[in-house]
């Protein structure tokens, strides 16, 4: 029996906009087990970004409960949330969010700077290992502006891996990339999921990306309207082979 990493019970989130209350999430229940690769889908305004912020411990629910790796998040303070993010979560963003004029290696090291237990030697070793696992061992000392979009996103993925999180949260991580590079990034995610058993929550609105994951959760108007296992799960590596040759980025 695998551990439940994420357990959300009757979770609600309201926002105050002027004198109106917007109910962004109206009562969400979901469970994500260790080793799952889940896609959260939905149109804009469906509540999927709000859900991701809460799952990422960047925001707190208005009502209901959220347990991350057995820890109930609702009662934690701002500082405790920061510690939790540092220990348990890895983020991958649509726009990479790498520090400019900072080498790939130093970008990857960044989360460990906020962890007192990791000494500088170990920090460097772990960052190198993370970069190797995303296939960028030879680009360690490059600056972000010397890397392609796909390579920058790989650096960001390495950064999300370096603290050995229980779950990686990806927010439209392929949104800025062309089809081929998107598949390459998805292949990397699939590999991290299958080979290393990483739990991944992937927010996207692209159906063909969602078909590469193992389970889809579809949001609309603050509700989960559909939850389904992916019947014919595709392999990103196979999809790459189907693409016309010649448009591979340099």
């Amino acid at each position: 029996m695998k551990n439940t990493i994420i357990e959300v019970t009757n979770l609600k989130k309201d926002f105050q906009v002027g004198d109106m209350t917007v109910h962004a999430l109206k009562g969400i229940n979901l469970k994500i087990q260790q080793g799952e690769f889940v896609a959260i889908m939905g149109a804009s305004g469906s509540g999927k970004s709000t859900m991701l912020n809460i799952l990422g411990c960047l925001d707190k629910p208005s009502a209901g409960d959220y347990k991350l790796d057995g820890i109930s998040v609702a009662e934690l303070t701002r500082n405790e949330l920061a510690e939790l993010r540092n220990a348990k979560l890895g983020f991958v963003f649509q726009s990479y969010n790498l520090l400019s004029r900072t080498s790939a290696l130093e970008n990857v090291e960044l989360p460990l700077f906020y962890n007192d237990k990791v000494k500088s030697k170990e920090r460097r070793e772990r960052a190198i290992a993370a970069l190797e696992s995303v296939g960028l061992a030879d680009r360690m000392h490059h600056m972000p502006n010397q890397l392609s979009g796909g390579q920058q996103q790989r650096v960001a993925i390495a950064r999300s891996l370096v603290n050995d999180p229980v779950v990686i949260l990806a927010d439209e991580a392929t949104g800025n990339l062309d089809t081929r590079t998107s598949y390459e990034i998805m292949e990397l995610f699939q590999r991290l999921n299958s080979d290393k058993g990483k739990t991944i929550v992937f927010v996207t609105h692209e159906a063909d990306i969602a078909r590469l994951t193992s389970r889809n959760i579809i949001f609309r108007d603050g509700w989960v309207i559909k939850e389904q296992m992916v019947a014919e799960r595709l392999s990103a590596a196979d999809q790459l082979k189907l693409l016309p040759v010649g448009d591979h980025e340099a």
Binding site: G56, A82, R85, F93, Y114, R159, N163
Partner: peptide, 16 residues
């Protein structure tokens, strides 16, 4: 601002 957001998301506290 984005750098600050990133630092917070990877575990930087307000005090840091």
């Amino acid at each position: 601002t984005r750098e600050i957001g990133l630092r917070m998301s990877i575990g930087g506290k307000g005090r840091d």
